[in-house]
Simulated assay, not measured.
Amino acid sequence: MEIIIPIELCELEAGTYHPLVQARFNDKNVGWWVIDSGASKSVFDKSLDNHYQPDEHPVKQATGLGKDLVETASGEISELWLGQFDFGSLTIALIDLTHINQEYARFSDKQIVGLLGSDFLIRYKAVIDYGQQQLILNLPDEEEFA
């Protein structure tokens, strides 16, 4: 089944755009995910601890934006609502997104809650249609979820 979710393009500098998709949480709060095909794993802002369950795994260091090491942990979001569709739970890396939100605040009023990485995009065979400003996702067959 194909699902179409509207995206917004956020222009951070002249001619540079980031595709964003709106998310809704259990408590009806709204945030924005940056669609980031260059991120190997989806990440979530660790300061939003009322929206995820942390794993028992110890904190690790991973390469972040640029060459700097960032402190990460892992967790799970129980419900990921994009548009009108609940994708269920999502395993995430937890990092501090303060620096990203500070940068976005210069150009937009959107709160960035995370980066949708290639783990999510590949699972749903994502296509970003910039002309129509939409994210097209394909739900896996039931057997693929097992």
Rank of each mutant, 00 (worst) to 15 (best):
M1A: 04
I3F: 02
I4C: 14
I4A: 15
I5M: 07
I5K: 03
P6G: 02
I7D: 00
E8T: 09
E8A: 12
E13A: 13
E13D: 09
A14G: 11
G15C: 08
T16W: 02
Y17G: 01
Y17V: 00
Y17W: 06
P19D: 02
L20Y: 04
L20K: 09
L20R: 09
Q22M: 13
N26I: 04
D27C: 14
K28I: 09
K28F: 12
K28W: 11
N29K: 13
N29V: 02
G31C: 05
V34L: 08
I35C: 09
I35Y: 05
S37N: 10
S42F: 01
V43G: 03
V43Y: 02
F44N: 10
D45H: 11
K46Y: 06
K46W: 03
S47V: 05
S47K: 08
S47L: 04
L48H: 04
L48S: 03
D49M: 10
N50E: 13
H51K: 14
H51R: 12
Y52P: 06
Y52Q: 05
Q53W: 06
P54K: 12
P54T: 05
P54D: 00
P54Y: 00
D55P: 08
D55L: 06
D55N: 14
E56F: 09
E56V: 12
K60A: 06
Q61D: 00
T63Q: 11
L65Y: 13
G66E: 01
K67Y: 00
D68N: 12
V70K: 02
E71N: 15
S74A: 08
S74I: 04
S74R: 13
G75E: 00
G75Y: 01
G75Q: 05
E76G: 07
I77P: 07
I77V: 05
E79Y: 10
L80G: 03
L80T: 13
W81K: 11
L82P: 08
Q84G: 09
F85K: 12
F87M: 08
S89Q: 13
L90P: 14
T91N: 14
T91P: 14
A93V: 03
L94Q: 00
I95W: 02
L97A: 03
L97H: 12
L97Q: 10
T98C: 09
I100R: 10
N101S: 10
E103A: 15
A105G: 04
A105I: 00
S108L: 00
S108W: 01
D109K: 10
K110T: 08
K110A: 11
I112F: 06
V113R: 08
V113E: 05
G117A: 07
D119I: 03
L121G: 00
L121N: 01
L121Y: 01
I122K: 14
I122L: 13
I122V: 14
I122C: 08
R123D: 03
R123E: 07
Y124D: 04
K125L: 07
A126M: 07
V127Y: 12
D129I: 15
G131M: 05
G131Y: 01
Q132S: 13
Q133R: 14
Q134V: 14
Q134C: 13
L135V: 04
L135T: 03
I136W: 05
L137M: 04
N138G: 08
P140G: 05
P140E: 05
D141C: 07
E142S: 12
E144P: 13
A146I: 08
